[in-house]
């Protein structure tokens, strides 16, 4: 069953692997360019004196960021984990998960599997294979980025801060995977799980607009905002997401055990 699921995911794995490699290459190649652009954005005090205060604050913030981006380690954390790679993780989880059960139901091949396998065994074999692919790919590209930057001559290191972001992204991507896998179980066609997933991906950031619902938006956690800004690992959110991921997986199992085909 592992091999069969891998065969089905092969094309998507290759596409995402190429996409992540391309992003990483672009990031490293454009590193000196970004450095140059950011340095040009620093403005001296003589130029600042006639500008309104809010504009001065904004420029000061930009100048501070550009200063920080001169540091290779900060560049890696903010541009790879918090931007390029991190932002694509929910979409990566969706693309990897939505077909796992929905395609079998949609194409009618589920009868072949259900005739020979008990439902819990079938559920776990497919679910664990998906988790395995998502986690392994995530880890590979999390660890490849600092290695690639080191090989390109930049001063980066495997710091506790870097590992903290990787752990948060790992927890975050498994949460999204479990949610999208549930959609794949709930629906009998391949369109609805994708639509539901896109609504979740696009909709979650809007929760941040409401102060009381901010905590429901996992993007700051996945992008490691707190780790970068304060240098601290978000333990409580990590625990919460693990509990929710386990709960969603259990719900998925129960739904699959009772679902009619």
């Amino acid at each position: 069953m592992f091999n069969k699921t891998m065969m089905e995911m092969k094309f998507r794995i290759i596409i995402f692997a190429l996409f992540f490699v391309l992003m990483l290459v672009v990031l490293i190649v454009t590193r000196p360019v970004i450095d140059e652009v950011m340095s040009q954005m620093s403005i001296d005090n003589e130029q600042l004196k006639d500008l309104p205060d809010f504009f001065k604050d904004m420029l000061a913030e930009t100048a501070q960021i550009s200063k920080m981006l001169e540091d290779d380690q900060f560049f890696l954390l903010s541009q790879w984990y918090s931007k390029n790679f991190g932002q694509f993780l929910p979409l990566f989880a969706l693309i990897m998960s939505f077909t796992i059960f929905a395609r079998e139901a949609d194409k009618g091949t589920i009868y072949f599997l259900l005739a020979k396998k008990n439902r819990p065994a079938l559920f776990w074999s497919k679910t664990i294979t998906g988790y395995f692919v998502v986690i392994v790919m995530m880890l590979i590209f999390s660890l490849t980025a600092p290695i690639a930057m080191m090989l390109s001559g930049y001063t980066v290191a495997f710091t506790p801060q870097l590992f903290a972001i990787i752990v948060q992204q790992l927890i975050g991507v498994t949460f999204f995977y479990s949610l999208f896998l549930l959609f794949s179980i709930l629906f009998n066609d391949q369109i609805k799980p994708v639509l539901a997933g896109i609504i979740v991906i696009v909709g979650l950031p809007f929760l941040s607009l409401f102060e009381s619902l901010k905590w429901l938006n996992p993007y700051p956690y996945i992008l490691g905002t707190q780790v970068i800004n304060r240098g601290t690992f978000d333990g409580l959110y990590t625990l919460g997401l693990i509990v929710i991921t386990v709960a969603i997986t259990w719900i998925g199992l129960e739904v699959f055990k009772k679902k009619e085909f």
Partner: peptide, 29 residues
């Protein structure tokens, strides 16, 4: 279940496979 073989009304099998690959997959599953 292991002792029951079934041919459904809808004879859909994995379309990306060849019969050769289908045999291999069945042998594993």
């Amino acid at each position: 279940r292991a002792n029951v073989a079934f041919v459904p009304e809808d004879k859909s099998f994995y379309e990306f496979m060849s019969p050769q690959a289908a045999i291999k997959v069945c042998h594993r599953i």
